[in-house]
Amino acid sequence: MNSYLVKAFCSVLLFFLSFPLALHFGSTDFGLNDLVNWFYSEPTMDETVMQTVLFNIRLPRILVGSLVGGSLAAAGVLSQGLFQNPLASPSVIGTTAGGSVAAALMFFTGVGGFHWLSLPLAAFTGCVVSTSIILLLASTKKMHSVETLLLAGFALNALFGAVTSFVLTLLLSDFQKFPALMFWMMGGLDAKGWWHLNILWPSVLLGVVLAWRISPKLDVLALGTDVASTLNVKVNSLRVISIITIAILVGAAVSVAGAISFVGLVVPHITRIQFGPHHRRLLFYSFLNGSTLVILSDVLARTLWSPQEVQVGILISILGSVFFFWLLFNRHKFSGS
């Protein structure tokens, strides 16, 4: 069997295995074995609790985690392709920070508590606004180069980071809002239900379809802007559509799970080593790998300190950065592949 098929099989297998694994393990003892027993016995109190744990807590959480991981990884593929820079990711160009600052303002003003949709919508809007700023900058002549845009992203990140920190200091004495914002900023999948899934999937679907359509053009863009232009790729409109798609994908993920970073940076890197630079292939497997990473990290987040829980965003950042270091020190081994 050729190596591509082996790698593809492993990615797909891991993705599908992560679901039953995540359904089986949690901070309580209920697992798939209880589900099997349930089919053969009369429901008792414990079984009602088991059903709630498996179907109303774990299952929606796994599905939300899967879409969040997938969309962040897909956004990472687009960012790296668009900026033609392996360092570019939604958290680097300021998209995630835009969502965070909007959420922080929601917590501060108290508007976030008015309706369950207000916080997700605000975070989504923040991502769109911050990415639009980058888009506006990209359309000016002075900011035409990719390097300048990346630097603009760094500056935007610093600005939004400062505003978020300022809001945090204002909330220091609010013992209700401060921890809520802190936990949100750490990124997590706790308390995610079916309605989170309902607000997430349409945006993710739209983002993935758009990403799929522009992926071949990103392959051409990888040859250089001049070559892409001569090959009939409208570079400026490609940039606009890519940035909008990144905003949709990241906005959807951030609005539901908070500021989970590193997925958009690490997953496309790993996937590129596995499957090469072809963008459609990269997008497909990055989505699967991103989903698997978030789902499995969440299993660890739920079980390592059970019955306590760690924010999955923290765990992903730790695992991601350690893995990234390993990757950087060993990249010569993969450069030939």
Partner: peptide, 11 residues
């Protein structure tokens, strides 16, 4: 202070 998971709270 301790942060519990949703499913632990349920039990």
């Amino acid at each position: 202070w301790v942060r519990l998971s949703s499913e632990s709270l349920l039990t």
